[in-house]
Structures are given as structure tokens and as C-alpha cells.
Design a protein around this nucleic acid. Structure first.
Lengths: 108, 108
DNA sequence: CGTGTAAGGAATTCTGACACG
DNA sequence: CGTGTAAGGAATTCTGACACG
């Protein structure tokens, strides 16, 4: 991946309304995940949040985990350990994910 | 370039205020270039314009040509002829660009 | 804990128009 | 021709809080 392509992925230019459309999450949820330290948008001059495509992908990953009953602090801990396996995780189906990482509460 | 990377470049997710910051152009200028058929943003549900990174690059290219005195209809015609040499043109310094394409009015 | 909602304010975006030239 | 600006309205975003549970 070239520097230019990397910039497209990581440059924070998307407003919360569009992130909401892209992820299907409510603005409330998106702001809450920030409060829980799962995502870190930048701020424009006058305070509006700006997200990158990577943030959008992280949010979709979070959404999947929330559906599985994972709690925010557990998601945060997983992100610390494996800061860049998001792509890997996203490509796996839920069952496989659950089995491999076992990050869900008391599953088997 | 993978499909995923292509999506980052072409997906229309940036609002006009941020495009303005990114390009240094006023919102007035950006809307005017649309009126002159140089860029084609999409619209969100309720009508706000949304741009891609490619649009941002096109705008920076347009800005350079405007500085050189090229007029909007001339830029539009160049874009028709060479729909994808933007990258090439952007990488050339102005003098070279002028000499090679000669699209400026009566230079020399 | 995670998320919906009403609340009020501030900032954003939109369109059509007048202005200069 | 290209761009600034004032105008009024509509939509966006922000924060802190109450609610449910």
C-alpha cells in the first residue's frame, strides 16, 4: 500500500452523520464508543468530529462484537492486544471468531 | 490498487466544509465548479453535497489551472480529452504543464 | 451498561440574488 | 467570468441530562 493510499484510509474527513449512514450505528452509539475509548475522531476547528475510513471499519467491527454481547471494556482490551488484526477478524464469520478468540462472556 | 483501496478514493463521503479546508478553495468556488460541470458530488438524503478524495484532487488540479488563467470551459474540455491524466498533470510543475499542453490563453 | 430522547445553542449547508467587472 | 457577500431557512452537530434497566 502506497503512502497515498494509506492517507485515504487514515485521513479524518468524515462527519458523524455520514459515519452513521455508513455503519448503520446511531450518532449516540458512535459518540458513546468514543467515550469508552474505542475510537478517536479528530475535531474540526469548531469542534465537530471527523472520522477516517479506518474508524468506520473499526466501528463496524465493534458493531459486530456488540451484537455478540461483547462489552465495551472487553472490546477495548482486545484492541490493545491486537491493534491490527481488525482486518483479519472482520473477514472471519462470527462462529469462527467466537471459537478462536473466546472473547465473549462465558461461551463454552 | 485493490477494490477496497479504490473505494476509499472514490466513495463520496466528505462534506463541502472539509473539502474547503483540504483544498483551500472557498465553498463558493467549489459550488461554482460544479455549476460549470467540472465536478460531480453526490447528495445526501437531505441534499448536502458529498465529495470523494478523487474529487478533492480534481479540485486541487482545477485550482492550479485557474491560477494559470485557464478558464472553466477550457478545463472541462481538457478533462473530456484526458479523463485520467490528472495524476500525471499534477506531478508536473506549472511551466512544464504550460509548455506541454499549451492550454493557457496566448502564453508566449 | 448501552442507548434513546428532548433541549437549546452554535455551526453548517443550501439556494437565488446582487455586486464587481 | 469567477467569486464575494448578505439573507433566510433547513439540517447538523454538540453537550449534559433524564430514562430504562
Amino acid at each position: 500500500m502506497t503512502d497515498e493510499e494509506k492517507t485515504y484510509k487514515t485521513k479524518k474527513v468524515i462527519t458523524i452523520g455520514i459515519v452513521s449512514e455508513l455503519t448503520g450505528l446511531s450518532e449516540r452509539q458512535i459518540r458513546y464508543y468514543e467515550e469508552r475509548k474505542l475510537i478517536f475522531p479528530e475535531r474540526s476547528d469548531r469542534g465537530t468530529r471527523k472520522y477516517s475510513f479506518v474508524d468506520v471499519e473499526t466501528l463496524m467491527d465493534i458493531a459486530n462484537q456488540m451484537e455478540d454481547g461483547v462489552r465495551t471494556f472487553e472490546i477495548r482490551q482486545e484492541m490493545k492486544k491486537k491493534p491490527d488484526e481488525d482486518k483479519l477478524k472482520r473477514s472471519m464469520i462470527k462462529g469462527q471468531l467466537n471459537a478462536q478468540f473466546g472473547i465473549q462472556k462465558g461461551l463454552k
